[in-house]
């Protein structure tokens, strides 16, 4: 039994992604196997050096860095979406695994749920 939570929405301006992150953390809290997949505009969650003081919101980059501590097993980034948004491994937060075939990744998990 494994769950893949997919975030395909941008990091700020909508709550959908944060709610999904909350869901992932809750599954991890109860020791359920859970991973995160970022695709589409969602890969922008992974961009390094986010400075959110000016928009008075908490940094999703910093929130995400708690995922391994809470027991989220993996963070995947869709390879094609990263290319579309100019994201290279150097420009991304640590601990991300590239996903060249995200449909396959979904088929490998028992449950896949999209944010929002």
């Amino acid at each position: 039994m494994s769950t893949l939570i997919v975030i395909d929405q941008p990091p700020y301006g909508t709550w959908a992604g944060r709610e999904a992150l909350d869901m992932a953390f809750s599954l991890a809290a109860f020791d359920q196997s859970v991973s995160l997949l970022f695709m589409g505009a969602g890969v922008n969650w992974l961009r390094a050096a986010q400075q959110t003081n000016g928009i008075e919101q908490k940094s999703v980059e910093k929130n995400l860095s708690a995922a391994p501590i809470f027991g989220v097993e993996a963070m995947y980034a869709d390879t094609l979406a990263c290319a579309q948004y100019g994201l290279t491994p150097e420009g991304m937060v640590a601990g991300v695994t590239m996903s060249p075939n995200s449909a396959e990744l979904m088929h490998q998990h028992t449950h896949t749920a999209f944010a929002g």
Partner: peptide, 16 residues
């Protein structure tokens, strides 16, 4: 200061 959040639940507090 690292994560800009409190551990969201008691279980995750203990885990952290």
């Amino acid at each position: 200061s690292s994560h800009e959040m409190s551990p969201p639940s008691n279980r995750l507090f203990v885990k952290s």
